[in-house]
Design a protein around this nucleic acid. Structure first.
Lengths: 114, 114
DNA sequence: AGTATATTTGGTAAAATTACCAACCATTGT
DNA sequence: ACAATGGTTGGTAATTTTACCAAATATACT
């Protein structure tokens, strides 16, 4: 792995890392619909305002969202909706994992019968 | 955010988390081409075998790859190539971030002139 | 100016991630 | 049976992430 290659993988991994948190993923997906301000997210998510604000700044630093001050409020906007296209494939993986899980459990159960 | 919703976001975030590391991303992308064994990755990546093995097991636990023992070697196979489709969008984000960066720098430079 | 509302920032403790080494297990070849 | 090769697992230290509280900032309203 060459140096410039490594840097690119780091950059790509950083974008994934920014999205790889339930709260941040939730907010990013919400932003597919429309812009939201911090105070709206506060109503939806059970966490401290400061926590939510920091999560948003992580998304912002990754270049996924941008902020936009409107009066007292700060609205967040999804710059690149395409980054959430992974969802469909992720659901396939989750489903497949659940099937594997239940297969495993039934194997264990049949082993118990002996 | 409801409980079952929360679980789904956690599951999706876990898949992203598994991919959100330069080494794991590199390996996953390599596996788009063909199956690779651990010893092949060891030659490509500057890290301990045990580190590489653990990274692969993280991808495996997330359900992204599966392993397949062939003689002394363990080959890894990409189960769901679609999960790497985010790359194209990620490159757009990276490019856009770089542009913002250079814009910022030129602003700072012109401020220095005053 | 002073208050209320909206948000960010700094500090800090707890938890998770990462990487390496050493030890272990599995398979092949002698 | 023994050595060699390929890989995983356990332990541990360093780093990063996360969440909260408290304090600071910014805007609108009185």
């Amino acid at each position: 792995m060459f140096e410039h290659e490594k840097e690119l993988y780091e950059a790509k991994a950083n974008i994934l890392k920014a999205l790889a948190h339930p709260t941040r993923l939730f907010m990013a997906e919400k932003l597919l619909q429309r812009d939201y301000c911090v105070c709206e997210f506060v109503k939806m998510i059970d966490a401290d305002i400061s926590t939510i604000s920091k999560h948003l700044s992580i998304l912002k630093n990754a270049g996924i969202v941008k902020d936009d001050k409107r009066g007292k409020q700060v609205y967040y906007h999804l710059k690149t909706p395409c980054i959430l296209q992974f969802t469909e494939c992720a659901l396939n993986i989750i489903e497949s994992n659940q099937k594997e899980q239940s297969k495993l459990i039934s194997h264990i159960e049949s082993d118990m019968e002996d």
